[in-house]
Amino acid sequence: MRSIDLKTTPLLLNDAGLFGIRTAPVADNSALGVVILNAGMVSNVGPFRLGVQLADALARLGCTCLRLDQSGKGESSIRPDVAASDAALLDYDDAFANLARGSIQQTVLIGVCSGAVDALRIAARRDSVVGLILLDGYVGKTPRWYWHRGLHALRWVRSAGLQGTLTRLLERLRSASSITKNAALTGDLDWPVADLPGSYQSVLGRDVKMLCVFSGNYLPYNHAGQLARFLSIGGDRANFREIFLRDADHIYSMKHHRDRLISILSEWVGGEFTKKNL
């Protein structure tokens, strides 16, 4: 990685106190902005500072990165009387307006979990988004998903035995809080998703470059290539790449998993958005 001095600037992006942190090379003349959305309710820093590390790595490639606290999250206030889905779009508009005051006309959006859902919806509605990185984003269940799930359950029953299986099932029934905890860990949340397959098609049809990375304990995803199958697109599609990091968890808790993720994302941004953008 090149040694580039970075400048980090905290910003209030509108009068209501929408907050973001801009990280860019000191000699900032990049044409590509990267907007990083919140992972769930965690602030722009991200779980284990994933957001900070990612912004630094991409800024060293020459990008101007903005870690955004979406309305009501991190340091930002709620937008009164605005639905959450609309707020995400308005937040992006305010962030982009700030980036566009310089030479930036195009952005790559990055989202984790619910942030990935927001990123997809924004990308489907804003032409300024030319790249999309979704970490454990929305994916539908395919026949192969049920096959893998069944195999996993069978393997588990074989190793735990009948008594172990019954004990585990009883434990699950007893503890509602553990189910909530599992949902938070795996991202298996009950979002309204009806519009999302259409958003994928819209974004891909517009030739937005898309990288989708899935972790190993994200329940809606359990085999490589599941998203491509779900969307019925060929794996060789030029603007679509799907990666399964089977060993990593949903929030990249371990340093070596985060390092690997950041390396993959940096390579992809560097490769897809060449010097003409940066």
Partner: peptide, 15 residues
Amino acid sequence: WLDSVEDIDREFMGH
């Protein structure tokens, strides 16, 4: 996860 940690004495719950 812990098996592949490069230095178990320096990494604490992800940091």
